[in-house]
């Protein structure tokens, strides 16, 4: 982490990022656009943890893939250290930004030993020789809390929590600046989740990492995040610092998510938002404010007109209730 950059400039910045997939319905159906990520602008200062929250299918993983260079955005730009990722070569992007995926049963190649898995970045980037690899793998395994003897074992011999530690070791062995954690605990037993969250928190402090921490569960995000962005149908509907979001949730969707955190076993499955209606199909998004069919406060205006992003003391919100120029502006709420 010797790359110099001023403290204020964001290490990761998204500008109006949109990703549209063409989805074919049926054998002879026409391909229709599905907007998985819709005009997302975010910026992530060095050392912060941005929590990205939203129900399953809202576009969180698609955004993660764009940041990792695995998918190209349809529109917009992603800048890492002020440089657009499309312009960087794959290897230099990989040195800066690494993923930890949701399912440690799927993220480790079952045919490879733990040593092969964790040393793959060293081999791909041609760092040192076999002796250095063994030493570095030993070190990073120790850092993530695994004994060196696991090097010769295979993923199928490990528990979910152990596997996730291996995935973390693989992500950190090249000392990246940014780690994209895509629901890193949601496939794990509840008893193991907090261990992994604590480990991620410790590692961030120790190595000065910047995290984008994705989850469908606000309770998990509260542990780690410094800022939170709430996503709905590919849009960021509210963004605030973590205290601001939990104390003054503005968007009705954020409020519903917060209520769902209070359900008996948070972290198990998709939170029950108690919004009555099901999550809309992203191929046929609702008109106006996309949240209006499920919003308890929606009016005809919400159905007709999409809200603009409105700055708040803690961040941003996309809701007519907080827009001074909207006929629905609600002084009390704001």
């Amino acid at each position: 982490m010797t790359r110099q950059s001023t403290q204020s400039s964001p290490v990761l910045e998204l500008r109006n990022v949109t990703k549209t997939y063409k989805v074919k319905q049926g054998l002879f159906g026409k391909a229709r656009p599905l907007t998985a990520v819709n005009d997302v602008s975010l910026s992530l200062p060095r050392g912060e943890v941005l929590g990205l929250v939203g129900e399953s299918g809202c576009g969180k993983s698609t955004l993660a893939k764009i940041l990792l260079g695995l998918e190209a955005p349809t529109h917009g730009q992603v800048l890492v250290d002020g440089e657009e990722i499309g312009a960087q070569d794959r290897l230099s992007l990989a040195r800066r930004i690494q993923p930890i995926f949701q399912d440690p049963y799927s993220s480790l190649n079952p045919r490879k030993s733990i040593f092969d898995i964790v040393s793959l970045p060293l081999r791909v980037h041609g760092v040192g020789g076999p002796q250095d690899w063994e030493k570095q793998v030993r070190e990073i395994l120790d850092i993530v809390g695994l004994p060196a003897r696991v090097m010769n074992t295979y993923p199928s011999q490990m528990s979910g929590g152990q596997r996730q530690r291996v995935a973390i070791a693989r992500a950190l062995i090249m000392k990246p600046e940014i780690v994209i954690c895509d629901e890193p605990t949601s496939a794990l037993d509840v008893s193991v989740q907090s261990q992994i969250l604590n480990l991620l928190g410790d590692l961030r402090r120790e190595f000065g990492l910047t995290y984008l921490f994705i989850s469908h569960d606000l309770a998990v995000v509260e542990h780690l995040a410094t800022r939170v962005a709430v996503m709905y149908l590919g849009r960021i509907v509210e963004e605030a610092d973590v205290a601001g979001l939990f104390d003054h949730a503005r968007h009705p969707y954020t409020q519903a998510l917060l209520k769902s955190v209070l359900t008996p076993e948070p972290g198990l499955g998709v939170p029950d938002t108690q919004l009555g209606m099901a999550y809309p199909n992203p191929i046929d998004p609702p008109s106006g404010c996309q949240f209006h069919p499920r919003c308890p406060l929606a009016t005809a205006h919400c159905k007709a007109k999409a809200p603009r992003p409105v700055p708040t003391p803690q961040g941003l919100v996309e809701c007519h209730l907080y827009d001074t120029e909207s006929p629905m502006f609600d002084n009390k709420a704001a």
Partner: peptide, 14 residues
């Protein structure tokens, strides 16, 4: 579609 393939690509593997 397995995540280890995405992980290898994110590492920069050709």
């Amino acid at each position: 579609g397995r995540e280890y393939v995405a992980a290898a690509r994110a590492i920069g593997a050709s």
